[in-house]
Design a protein around this nucleic acid. Structure first.
Lengths: 247, 247
DNA sequence: CGAAGCCTTGACTACATTCAACAGGCGTGG
DNA sequence: CCACGCCTGTTGAATGTAGTCAAGGCTTCG
């Protein structure tokens, strides 16, 4: 996924606002033509979109803030999480190119979104987004599908968090990385894993130590190999898939 | 919440089909007038609704089945869950009067729905439901709101499952019972808890023993009292609320 | 080269699970 | 009517999985 041009454009004329490096898009001068760089066709959303980048570890928005925008990630990875008062963190999900963020139908954001890697997003004002949803059946169905998919993912994550062992959790996680990669036409056995151990731990409801130990265990069993550059090779995807549902 | 009349009507002319006792509604002869019995005004959904009851412990539908209908619960409680191949169960939620079920936007149901108590539901054919969503902005916004709320609940449940202790889980659960009761105008300190320990355990990601022990602990601490008829008194709601987020 | 951050590993602990026994309620049938 | 079995819930003791605390290795980067 390489909207590199778009990012370059943004950065060239960008203004930093908190964690958000943003550039109001000049619709005529530098029209965004995402279809050249991704599978996604240009759509009615382009009409109301502006683009921006978020630097590593900086927030795109925070839980409780007034929800003014909806976002679509075009490159990079973003972590979405909720915090307990004492600082415990539960990562709800990792959001990547093609995924939407902040579709709360609520006045405030329900979670915090932070960049795992520097990320590029399309930004849509919520007001105009809502109008568009009412008027445009295609956009509507697409967002409905996105939301439904989010619900499905959330429910599967509940099964993972409530009923799976550490090893099953890790294998499920690796499998989902593989599936995501495959869905975007990448190799499903050499996948990128840009998030750190702490992020994985907070996503799977474990500690960094347990994540590390379990990864070592899978490595020793010959199921995976750690590669440079936050990459991981899934040597035995079948066994990983089996272990994802039964220890 | 007493759609007792409606239930009586159904039972009088009902046919059993699996777990589902159903009666095709005769729109002119016995018009459903839910507004007399609940807060909900009659709506466009009435046009395509039929009503049915599900007996205790019987399924309304199963995960993987072709999703032909969408349901709205009008009385009783339904548990929604997913199973792992080896039988481990994660309850996604308890669905009560006013809640919707089976809004999958998918061809098959993503989870199983079983009656905790005998329950009454309104049933809508998915096809006609989809048409209605496209045509009727009011219905659409309502279902969008329902879905968004489901997502919020799911995300909060992830925090619970991934990051809370047994005591915090139980307190959060009790608090949610109280909130639900309050929302429908019932007493928020003497609430009904129709599900058994096994259901609670599978909802909170615990075992029945841990649920039982934790309840005993809360009882000993003077925060709750168990009453007859699956009722529970929340003696100290404030402390319960505190303990829901920090041990 | 040194400092910082991330990851790994080890030893010990603790929370929740497992295994087991038992109590109480309820319906059925003798 | 009581006896019995069944089911649900409670309690106890032992176990185990993952957490906590602590130290050390490795990479990265100034």
């Amino acid at each position: 996924m390489a909207p590199a041009l778009a990012i370059a454009n943004v950065n060239a004329t960008s203004v930093t606002l908190g964690g958000l490096v943003q550039a109001r898009r000049n619709a005529t001068a530098t029209p965004v033509n995402p279809s050249r760089w991704t599978m996604r066709p240009s759509d009615a959303l382009d009409e109301i979109a502006s683009i921006a980048t978020v630097e590593r570890d900086l927030p795109l928005f925070r839980e409780g803030e007034h929800a003014e925008n909806v976002f679509e990630v075009t490159s990079g990875t973003i972590r979405v999480f909720k915090l307990l008062p004492d600082g415990r963190r539960q990562i709800i999900g990792f959001v990547e190119a093609g995924d939407f963020l902040g579709l709360s139908f609520n006045d405030t954001y329900l979670y915090t979104a932070e960049a795992v890697t520097t990320a590029a997003v399309r930004r849509f004002p919520r007001r105009r987004m809502e109008t568009l949803i009412d008027e445009n059946p295609i956009i509507r169905r697409r967002l409905l599908a996105v939301t439904a998919n989010e619900l499905l993912t959330a429910q599967e994550q509940m099964v993972l968090l409530g009923r799976k062992t550490a090893k099953e959790k890790l294998c499920t996680f690796l499998l989902s990385l593989s599936r995501k990669a495959a869905r975007r036409g990448l190799c499903d056995t050499r996948v990128s894993m840009p998030m750190g151990r702490a992020d994985i731990a907070d996503y799977l409801g474990l500690t960094i130590e347990t994540v590390s130990r379990t990864i070592t265990c899978l490595k020793t069993a010959g199921l995976i190999r750690l590669l440079d550059g936050h990459k991981i090779e899934l040597t035995d995807l079948d066994t990983i898939a089996e272990m994802a549902e039964a220890a």
